[in-house]
Amino acid sequence: MKAGKLWRRIVLAVMALYVLVPLVGVAEFALRMRRGVYSFDAFVEVFGDDRFQETFLYSCGMALVTVVIGVVLIVPAAYAVRLHAPRLRSFVEFVTLLPLVVPAIVIVFGYLRLYGSDSFLPLTDTDTGADALLAFGYVTLSLPYIYRSVDAGLTSMDVRTLTEAAESLGARPLTVMLRVVLPNIRTSVLSGAFLTAAIVLGEFTFASLLDRPAFGPYMQLLGANRAYEPAALSLVAFALTWGLMALIGAFGGRRPGS
């Protein structure tokens, strides 16, 4: 075996151990809830917990709302910047990256000051208002992921020429968007959407400080009070994230027309 090949295998093996050993440890611990034997009791406990189902469904709904708002806002914006204001592209990119720089806790305290009980728009006073605020917060958090995915998708197609081709054939802007632009960046939009969903499902800061019944705070609560269930829950969360990543890979690999 050549030295280069051997090194590659060693590096891969070390990487695999680094990732897998903690997971195997967590899994092993999660299965030891019943004294002396391995069992799925911790998983049964987690799945049987009403709060798990409630918070999980709430976060799934929130992820869906976030993705819809994000796509509706960001796809036309990224398209418009590319078509009509290409010079603004780097500025817009900078703005969309801000949520990665500004800590979530700063953003949420800003929200509480702006939309708290004493403000001109007290969104936090009602559940619906607080849900809306959480969704808007999640859209802000997802900006870097959705914008960059969409922008990468737009880079891969000749947006201007395809738009002009469609317009010359009589298409209105909405038709161009729905029948030309969106279908051709579908994989990018889906990648951004799944990434956003993965982030929303595990998000803690926004949901906790806005006091919403989301999956993130539930995981934290469980972790603070139980032993085996949090290990089972973290494996469930891992599986969810991996599932979403696999979907990104599946859709990302599919080319239009294939």
Binding site: T161, L162, S168, R179, V180, P183, N184, R186
Partner: peptide, 15 residues
């Protein structure tokens, strides 16, 4: 305008 346009880069809709 009811014009037909053919582009250098073909500009066929890939989807």
């Amino acid at each position: 305008r009811r014009i037909g346009m053919v582009f250098q880069s073909y500009a066929l809709f890939p989807n």
